[in-house]
Design a protein around this nucleic acid. Sequence first.
DNA 1: CTTTTTTCTTGACATAGGTCAATGACGACG
DNA 2: CGTCGTCATTGACCTATGTCAAGAAAAAAG
Lengths: 193, 193
Amino acid sequence: MFEVLFRNVADKIDLTEEEKQLCKSFFAPKKLRKRQYLLQEGDVCKYVAFVEKGMLRSYTIDDKGSEHIMQFAFEGWWIADNYSFLTGEPATYTIDALEDSELLLLSKQAEDQLLEKIPKFEKYFRLLLQNNVIATQRRLMSSHSQTAEERYQQLIDSCETIPQRVPQHMIASFLGITPETLSRIRKQMTAKN
Amino acid sequence: MFEVLFRNVADKIDLTEEEKQLCKSFFAPKKLRKRQYLLQEGDVCKYVAFVEKGMLRSYTIDDKGSEHIMQFAFEGWWIADNYSFLTGEPATYTIDALEDSELLLLSKQAEDQLLEKIPKFEKYFRLLLQNNVIATQRRLMSSHSQTAEERYQQLIDSCETIPQRVPQHMIASFLGITPETLSRIRKQMTAKN
DNA sequence: CTTTTTTCTTGACATAGGTCAATGACGACG
DNA sequence: CGTCGTCATTGACCTATGTCAAGAAAAAAG
C-alpha cells in the first residue's frame, strides 16, 4: 500500500519522510471486488479514490438507460464524482470496479487537513487537475473532429493494454459509440492490414 | 481594470488590501480589438488571460480545415492553451477576440511568483480547475448521450445571452455540429412552440 | 446609400453510425 | 461437462447529421 501513491506524488512534488508518514494517516485503505460499487448514482460522493491496484470506471446512465463511461482509472489514477464530492450534491456518476482493486480513500475532511498540514499538496492536486482538464478537452475535441475509427485507433495507440483489460463494449461506451459499431470498425481495420 | 478579477477571486478566497495591491503587479493589462489573435496555433502560449471585458474564444483546426471551438470566455473567465502554457510546446489552439476586449495577462513566471507570494492562490486556481474539469466532463457526456437539439437547448438555457453575442455558426462549432444543422434545428424548435 | 463581406437558410443528396434481432463464442460455476 | 450469463459478431434497415451548392438576409465597409 502507498507505493503507487508515493511514486505518483514524487513526480510532482517532493515529500520528506515525515510528511509521507503524516500523509498516510489521511487515507483509508479499501479493497473492492470486481463488480462492486464504490459510488452509486444518487448517493453523495464522500471520497476521492486513488487506485493502488486493479481498475475502476465511472459512468453515467442516460434517460434511455444506456451507460456512458466517463473514465477508466488504472493503477496510479484518481477517480471520483468531482461535482458531488465538491458540493455534497447527489452523484450523477456511478463508480465500480472492473477488477479486484485496492484503493486509498480520501474524504473531504481528510483532504482539507492534508492540504493544511502539507500545503505542497495544493500544487500536486492543481497539477493533477490541470492534466485532467487537458485530457478531457482533447477527448471532447476528438469527439467533434474525428471519426469513431480514428478515436479508437488513438485510444489503443495511447494505451495498448486497454483492450486486454476492458471488455470491448466498454471501450465503445468510453468512445461514445455502440458495441456493434466498434465491432464493425475493428473488422474493417484488420481487413486493411 | 481588476474589478472583475477581484470580484471573481473573492468568491473563492479572501484577500487583504495589501495582497490585492501585490497581486496587481503580476498582471499585464492588454486590449484586443475584435478579430485580433491572442494566440495562434503553433506559437507557444505564454500567458493565461483573464477577461475583464469583451469575449474571446479558443478553437482548433482539424486536417480538413474546419474549426472546432473549445471555449468561449466572457467577462470573468480565464482562457489559454493549458497544455502549451504548462509545457512550453507549440499551441494546438488558436485564441482570438470576438469583441473588443480588455484582458489581464499572467505569464508563467508571474504565476509562479503569485503562487509563492500569495499561496492562497493555489486554492483559487485549484477550484477554478475543478470547475473546469466538471464542466468539460459534462460537455463530453452530453456529446455522447444527447442529440444536437438537446445540447443546443441546454446551452441557451444555461446562457441566454450567448445567441446575442456569438454568431450562430460559432455556436454550432462549439456544439460540434455544422451551421446548416443548427439552422435546421432552430427552425424545428420554433415550429414546436 | 451602395457595395462587399459575412452569416443564415434551404434543398437535394450522401453517409456514419444507431437500432433491433439473431447467432455464435466463451468462460464461470454448479 | 453441461448450462447460463456475458460478450462479440453480423445482417437488414433506419435516422441524425454532414456535404455541397445556391440564394437571401444582415452587417460592415466605403
